[in-house]
Simulated assay, not measured.
Amino acid sequence: MSKVRMTTAVPVLSVVAAGALLAGCSGSVSVGKSEPKVSADKLATTVSEQLAAQTGRPKPHITCPEDLTGKVGSSTRCKLTADDGSTLGVTVTVTSVKGSKVNFDIKADDKASPAAN
């Protein structure tokens, strides 16, 4: 499985998504709060946008069930749902925090789950 590293700056959030199957990557978040936190909706939207930009394909449907807290070791599980209904789990884990910048890794599961019938 390949690993892609890339950092993208966005006013509130920077997230990176890797190739077509989200093999693995790193990203960062900059926020002005005392304890940085990335909302679940913003995280999902940005992962989707970055994946589309990386692959040149339409934005995939990404959902994240909770906010990502800017504390080393904190993580959340997101889900990518493909057009055929199959899903791929994605784990986002905070690796470091420097001031208002939160660095994290994104790692996709090795196998997708088939679409529900």
Rank of each mutant, 00 (worst) to 15 (best):
M1C: 08
M1I: 11
S2R: 12
K3I: 08
R5G: 10
M6H: 10
M6N: 09
V10F: 07
V10A: 04
P11M: 03
V12N: 13
L13Q: 02
L13C: 11
S14P: 00
S14N: 10
V15H: 01
V15K: 01
A18P: 09
A18D: 15
G19N: 14
L21S: 13
L22D: 12
L22Y: 07
G24Q: 13
G24N: 13
C25F: 06
C25P: 06
C25S: 15
S26H: 08
S28F: 15
S28R: 14
S28W: 14
S28V: 09
S28N: 14
V29N: 11
V29M: 15
S30P: 00
V31P: 02
V31Y: 04
V31R: 13
K33P: 03
S34F: 11
S34V: 15
E35S: 12
P36S: 11
K37F: 04
K37S: 15
K37G: 01
S39T: 15
S39L: 13
A40L: 01
A40V: 07
D41Q: 15
D41F: 01
D41W: 01
A44Y: 05
T46D: 02
V47G: 03
V47P: 03
S48H: 00
Q50R: 15
L51V: 10
A52E: 00
A53W: 02
Q54D: 02
Q54E: 13
T55N: 00
G56Y: 06
K59I: 02
P60C: 04
H61F: 05
H61W: 03
H61L: 14
I62G: 06
I62L: 11
I62H: 07
T63Q: 14
T63M: 15
P65T: 10
P65L: 06
E66L: 09
E66Y: 03
D67C: 09
L68T: 11
K71W: 00
V72S: 08
V72D: 11
S74Y: 02
T76D: 05
R77W: 03
R77K: 15
C78F: 10
C78S: 03
C78Y: 05
C78I: 09
L80C: 03
L80N: 07
T81H: 02
D83W: 06
D83M: 13
D84M: 09
D84R: 04
G85H: 09
S86K: 05
S86E: 04
T87E: 13
L88F: 07
V90K: 00
V90I: 15
T91N: 15
V92K: 05
T93P: 12
T93C: 12
T93D: 04
V94N: 03
S96H: 09
V97N: 12
G99Y: 03
S100A: 12
S100C: 01
S100R: 13
K101I: 04
K101W: 08
K101D: 07
N103L: 08
N103D: 12
F104T: 00
I106H: 01
I106M: 11
K107W: 00
A108L: 10
A108K: 04
D110P: 02
D110E: 13
K111F: 12
A112F: 09
S113H: 09
S113P: 00
P114V: 11
P114W: 02
A115L: 05
A115H: 02
A115T: 03
A115Y: 01
A116M: 14
N117Y: 08
